[in-house]
Simulated scan of single mutants.
Amino acid sequence: SCKHKVYLETLPNTSIIIPFHNEGWTSLLRTIHSIINRTPDSLIAEIILVDDFSDREHLKEKLEEYMVRFAKVRIVRTKKREGLIRTRLLGASLARGEVLTFLDSHCEVNVNWLPPLLNQIALNHKTIVCPMIDVIDHNHFGYEAQAGDAMRGAFDWEMYYKRIPIPPELQRADPSDPFESPVMAGGLFAVNRKWFWELGGYDPGLEIWGGEQYEISFKVWMCGGGMYDVPCSRVGHIYRKYVPYKVPSGTSLARNLKRVAETWMDEFAEYIYQRRPEYRHLSTGDISAQKELRKHLKCKDFKWFMAAVAWDVPKYYPPVEPPPAAWGEVRN
């Protein structure tokens, strides 16, 4: 059905923001070339490559020389290792496009990937949209379609990202139509630039990586917006077997998750602490500015989010574990 879809004649343009740290040469080039080759030029305001203090030689002068051929590509570099979240924020702060589109540096965008995303934002500027993420095999780098049917983004009560079936109530007559999703998978999404900053961007108190996808997802839903996955927008992504760089010591995914839970999840944070008691004693840092933002935007509470948006999550991941149906032992 995607071949026959018609989009608005006038779509907003976008700044495409690609953070990277010690990325492989060909993976980064594949990302850039696929964008240039498969995106209407009029829709690209700029492509901002944000180098998070890489030390690999090919990402210095060689990269600068190579990117000269692309008029819309500019390279920005941090002065110290900032981590994914703050690197994205830096790119967003320099962007001039009407929409911000965030991609990872090891992707391949597919044919006509951008208009379906921009169309949804043009219809409602308080919308975050995510492409369907296909798989680029980390061994042979072949592009493979995402396995199975389209699914909604969800989470369990240890804050692991999950995918759950689209319930019948939300299924569209045309399965290629965008559908609501409670949380996003991670770093591939588009958002109206002004709306992103109205929401406060990412919480700058989140360190390096992790938890930011929940923060932005809860925030957009609870503060008057919505989030959609768009089946006609396909982007391949390399799921790496190992991280090709060192994460600075002293940073903690657990701290980020607790910070998000304390800011946005209200009494539901207790379900996380029951499963992860070690989180109780972690410091979140100062979250008063985040709480103030929530008040200023007149955001709804997390109970509303669970009832109105993520109402199907407890069916698969109940906050309170049901008692075992049976118990005993197995002998061989």
Score class of each variant (00 low, 15 high):
Gly148Glu: 03
Tyr7Ile: 00
Pro322Asn: 07
Val6Tyr: 04
Gln120Pro: 02
Lys291Glu: 11
Leu257Met: 15
Pro168Cys: 07
Pro12Ser: 10
Arg275Met: 11
Glu144Cys: 05
Tyr202Ser: 07
Ser181Val: 00
Gly210Asp: 04
Gly205Lys: 04
Arg56Ala: 02
Asp177Cys: 06
Ser181Met: 04
Met227His: 09
Ser15Arg: 02
Gly97Ile: 01
Lys80His: 14
Phe196Ile: 01
Cys232Arg: 07
Phe141Pro: 00
Ser34Tyr: 01
Pro19Leu: 00
Cys299Ser: 11
Ile133Phe: 07
Leu49Ser: 10
Glu98Ala: 14
Lys300Gln: 14
Leu170Glu: 15
Leu100Gln: 11
Ile121Ala: 04
Tyr228Phe: 15
Val135Ser: 14
Val191Asn: 06
Arg294Thr: 14
Ile35Ala: 09
Asp203Met: 01
Gln213Arg: 09
Asn332Cys: 13
Leu84His: 11
Tyr228Glu: 03
Pro116Gln: 01
His33Cys: 10
Arg74Ser: 00
Glu212Ala: 07
Pro165Ile: 00
Tyr273Ala: 08
Pro322Lys: 08
Asp137Val: 10
Ile48Cys: 11
Ala147Asp: 12
Gly205Trp: 00
Val73Arg: 08
Phe302Trp: 03
Val73Asn: 05
Val109Ser: 01
Pro178Leu: 03
Ser176Met: 09
Asn256Tyr: 04
His140Met: 12
Arg56Gly: 02
Glu215His: 10
Arg193Leu: 00
Lys295Cys: 04
